[in-house]
Each structure stands twice: as C-alpha cells, then as structure tokens.
C-alpha cells in the first residue's frame, strides 16, 4: 500500500473516532465545541509518556483515553449546568484554556511541540476505529442509548419519565471525551509528532460539522459525515485543478493555469454546510432513512411508521 493511501486511512480512522467522541455528547443534545481540547489531552498524554518515560504504545494510548475521559467527566459536572449557547461557549473556552496551557508549558514543549519516539502503521487506527464504531452502535442499542435518544428528542419529557438527565449527560460526555482522547493518542503515534497549533479552534469546528452534517439521530451519522468530509478534500485535490483547467480551457488558455488555492476546499465545505442547514438540517442520515433501508425488516418498519406517522 502506498504511503499516500495509508496516510489517508490513518487520518480517516482518527477522524471517525474523533467524530464519535463528539457524537456521544451531541446525541444527548449537548453541542461540544471543545473537541480539539480533549484530543489535545489524549495526544499530549501519549506523546509525553512515550517521550519521557518510554512507555509502550498500548499503555500510553490507555493513559490518554483515561486522562481525557477523567478530564471530560470533571469538566462535565460544572459545564453541564449550562445549556444552549452557554454550553457551546463553555466547551469552546475549555479547549482554548487547554491549548493555551500547553502552549505555556515548558514541560510539554510549548510552541515547539513534542516528537514522539513511537510509530504505528495505518492498521492500528483502522482496527481501533472499527472497535469504536462497534462500541458506539452497541451503546446506542442499549437502554442507556435509548435514554440518550430520549434526552436528545425531548429533555423535559425524559425527565418526567424518570430518566436521570444529569447522569446520562455526564456519562455520555465523559465517554465522548475519552474517545476524543483516543483519537488524539492515535494521532500522536501515527504522526510521531504533536504540536499544539494543530489542535486549534478550527479543528473543533470541523469535527462538530462532520457530526451535525452526518446526522445525530443514528450512530451512522458520524461515520458518514467523517468519511465524506475526510475523503472529499482528497478527491477535490485532484478534481479542482482539472475543473479549473477545463473552465479556463473554454476560453482557450488552458496551458498556463496556476493550480487553485488550497482554501477552495474549505470554501466548498462551508458552502455545503450552509446549503445542508437549509435543505436538510437534521443531517444526511436520519432515523427514518435507516429504517427504510432495512428492507429485510420491511413488515416491521412499515407497521412502525404507520404508528409514528398516523
């Protein structure tokens, strides 16, 4: 397998795990715009432990996950008192504080970053991603997943029905933070280098967009969203210059065309976000869509739809 392909597979797997981390929070109705902060915790935990104590990769990843999860639970208790805009701001502020603290820490390399004396091949993140996907699908199928779904759809009614809102939210946020930490740890050992500048506010924005555009109603959403938006830039990397040459070629000057700016890819991501919110704000994959696709259970689904739509 070429280096290019394995690089894409690694980052794809990391993005999918990261998206599931944010998904677990969003699936209980909490917009987590602090993804980069949790990923940074996991990445720096893995990098620091490997570089300083020479721990093995599985152990450092485990530490990263546990640390990010603990930080997530610790921050969830005070933060989850807030709602809506306040929660978005609080998670965003949390990420900025974490990255700012790392930037000012001599021990963690400050602006220089840490090089990690460990390396894993592409199949490690991919296997982990498959495990995470299975885990989240399992969680969503349990009673706990049902409670998450209930809170997402209507918090007050779930509260009346006896669902422990606070408990479910904190646990979902904490597991999500742990998964974001795992993605950070995998990032550190896949690239053998971490620098705090890569965990910026834009990263938090991107991953939230993956989740929301993919759809938050089912566990398929983050998978579709993260895959689509990780592959899209790579496809555009080839397609955009071709498109530009073709367009300029219409005016008969195809030979001396400069390749288009990298920024176009982000313009396209932004435009798709805006259009998506107008056309299909609930995300690409919805619950009804998944049910309709399960044609082998046709009888059951059509009966259920009669109940819900009738």
């Amino acid at each position: 397998m070429s280096g290019y392909m394995s690089g894409i597979l690694s980052i794809l797997a990391i993005n999918i795990i990261f998206a599931y981390g944010i998904f677990l929070a969003v699936a209980t109705g909490q917009l987590n715009l602090g993804g980069a902060g949790f990923q940074a915790v996991g990445a720096y935990a893995a990098a620091y432990l490997t570089a300083t104590f020479g721990l093995s990769v599985p152990l450092t990843l485990l530490f990263g996950v546990v640390l990010a999860g603990l930080v997530g639970v610790a921050i969830a208790f005070p933060i989850l008192r807030t709602k809506g805009v306040y929660l978005v701001l609080a998670t965003f502020a949390f990420a900025e504080v974490i990255t700012g603290a790392i930037l000012n820490s001599e021990e963690l390399g400050g602006a220089m970053g840490i090089s990690v004396p460990a390396y894993v091949d592409w199949y490690v993140p991919v296997i982990m991603a498959v495990c995470v996907i299975g885990f989240v699908f399992y969680v969503m199928s349990t009673r706990f997943g049902l409670a998450m779904r209930a809170i997402h759809d209507d918090e007050q009614v779930s509260d009346l029905m006896g669902v422990s809102i606070r408990g479910v939210k904190v646990v979902a946020f904490g597991i999500g933070a742990a998964l974001a930490g795992l993605s950070g740890g995998l990032y550190a050992v896949s690239y053998s280098y971490v620098e705090v500048q890569s965990f910026n506010a834009l990263l938090s924005i991107y991953v939230l967009l993956y989740v929301l555009l993919g759809g938050t109603q089912t566990a398929w959403g983050p998978l579709v969203g993260a895959t689509f938006f990780t592959i899209l830039p790579e496809v555009l990397r080839d397609a955009l210059p071709a498109l530009k040459t073709a367009v300029v070629g219409l005016f008969g000057d195809a030979d001396n065309v400069a390749p288009p700016d990298e920024s176009w890819r982000f313009v396209i991501l932004g435009l798709m976000t805006i259009l998506m919110m107008v056309i299909r704000p609930e995300g690409l994959v919805t619950r009804t869509m998944v049910e309709n696709l399960q044609f082998w259970k046709k009888g059951a689904t059509s009966a259920r739809r009669e109940v819900t739509e009738g």
């Binding site: 978005v88 939230l208 313009v267 919110m277």
Partner: peptide
C-alpha cells in the same frame, strides 16, 4: 443557525 454561521466563517 450557529452551524450555518460556522459555514459562513469558513467560506
């Protein structure tokens, strides 16, 4: 609306 405004920020 917040997500749309993030889209505009990128664009």
């Amino acid at each position: 609306p917040l997500v749309s405004s993030l889209g505009f920020l990128l664009v």
